[in-house]
Each structure stands twice: as structure tokens, then as C-alpha cells.
Computed example of a mutant assay.
Amino acid sequence: MAILNVYSALVVLFLTCWAAMATKEYDQIIKENNCETKMGLPCVLEAFTSIFETGTISNKCCGELGRLGKVCHSALVKRTLENPLFKGLSLATIIAKRIQTWNNCLALIYSPSPST
């Protein structure tokens, strides 16, 4: 029984340390890449809404998301998911919506414009 308690304590300690390291890792990526300065607030809100709620992202904001880059996009979403306010959200759903938003924006940015 004592071994089970020690094992449980080690698992909790490991998970707590891993979460703290992950947050620091995302913060470091965000800082090193100046992620928080690459998009205007209106576009940040559009991207957030398209990923964490139900909404769309405009062509203009897709352009800003593309300039933000995949590394920043991913780190910002993952850091947001670690916030206790978003604890009840489905991780799989949010990751799928993050990928979908990114792919849709890239398709829009790099699609050939119709000739006029």
C-alpha cells in the first residue's frame, strides 16, 4: 500500500513538473520569436474565436496568421490551453480546429487569384 502511495506521489510530481516545463517552453518560444507582436489585436481575436469558439477568420487576418508563422501559432494555442480558464475544453477538438484554421488560411493565402 505504501508503494502505491509513493508511486502516486511521484506521478503527480512528474505531471506537475512537466506542465510547468511545458509552459516555460511555450513562453520561451513565444518570447524568442516575438510572437505576441506579429498580429494585431483584431486578428488575434478572430483567430482565437475560430479556434476556441465558433467563428471565422477573415482574409486579412489569415494573412497576419501566415506572417505569424506555424511555430508561434502552435505555441500560443498550446499556452492558452494550459490556462485554467480553458481546462474544460476538448484538447482534441481545439488541436483539430487549430490545424484546420492554419490550413484554411494557408490555402487562402497561397491559392492563385482568379484572373480578371
Rank of each mutant, 00 (worst) to 15 (best):
Leu15Arg: 11
Arg67Met: 04
Leu89Thr: 01
Cys105Val: 13
Val77Asp: 07
Val77Pro: 04
Glu46Arg: 03
Leu85Ala: 08
Glu53Asp: 07
Ser90Asn: 11
Lys97Cys: 07
Cys43Ser: 06
Tyr110His: 11
Cys62Arg: 03
Asn83Lys: 07
Lys87Tyr: 06
Val44Tyr: 14
Leu15Pro: 01
Pro114Trp: 09
Ile3Phe: 13
Leu76Val: 03
Leu65Cys: 03
Leu68Cys: 05
Leu10Arg: 12
Thr101Pro: 02
Cys72Ser: 04
Lys70Gly: 00
Ser58Ile: 09
Leu15Trp: 12
Ile95Asn: 15
Asn33Ser: 09
Thr116Val: 00
Leu41Phe: 14
His73Glu: 03
Glu46Met: 00
Thr101Ile: 11
Ile57Gln: 11
Ala20Val: 13
Gly40Met: 09
Cys105Trp: 11
Leu91Asn: 11
Thr49Leu: 04
Cys62Ser: 04
Pro114Ser: 04
Ile51Lys: 02
Thr37Cys: 03
Thr16Pro: 08
Lys97Glu: 15
Leu106Met: 13
Ile95Trp: 08
Ala92Gly: 08
Ala96Gln: 11
Ala19Ile: 00
Thr23Phe: 01
Ile109Val: 14
Leu45Cys: 00
Ala75Pro: 07
Gly66Thr: 02
Ser58Cys: 05
Leu76Thr: 02
Thr37Phe: 11
Ala9Tyr: 08
Lys24Trp: 13
Ala107Gly: 15
Ala75Arg: 10
Ser58Glu: 04
Thr93Glu: 12
Phe14Arg: 09
Asp27Gly: 03
Leu76Cys: 07
Ile51Tyr: 00
Ile95Asp: 15
Ser90Cys: 09
Ala22Pro: 02
Phe14Val: 12
Gly88Leu: 14
Leu108His: 12
Met1Tyr: 09
Ile95Leu: 14
Glu25His: 14
Phe48Asn: 03
Ala92Arg: 15
His73Phe: 11
Asn5Pro: 04
Asn83Thr: 01
Leu4His: 04
Pro42Glu: 10
Glu36Cys: 02
Glu53Phe: 14
Ser58Phe: 07
Asn103Met: 09
Val12Trp: 12
Met21Gly: 00
Gly66Ile: 06
Gln100Ser: 09
Glu36Met: 06
Glu46Leu: 00
Arg79Met: 01
Glu82Ile: 00
Cys17Trp: 05
Ser90Pro: 02
Gly66Ser: 02
Arg67His: 04
Val11Ile: 12
Leu15Cys: 10
Met39Ala: 05
Arg67Asn: 09
Tyr110Gly: 00
Ile95Ser: 15
Glu25Trp: 15
Ala22Gln: 11
Tyr110Ser: 00
Thr16Arg: 12
Leu13Asp: 10
Val71Arg: 14
Cys35His: 05
Ala92Val: 14
Ala75Leu: 04
Gln28His: 13
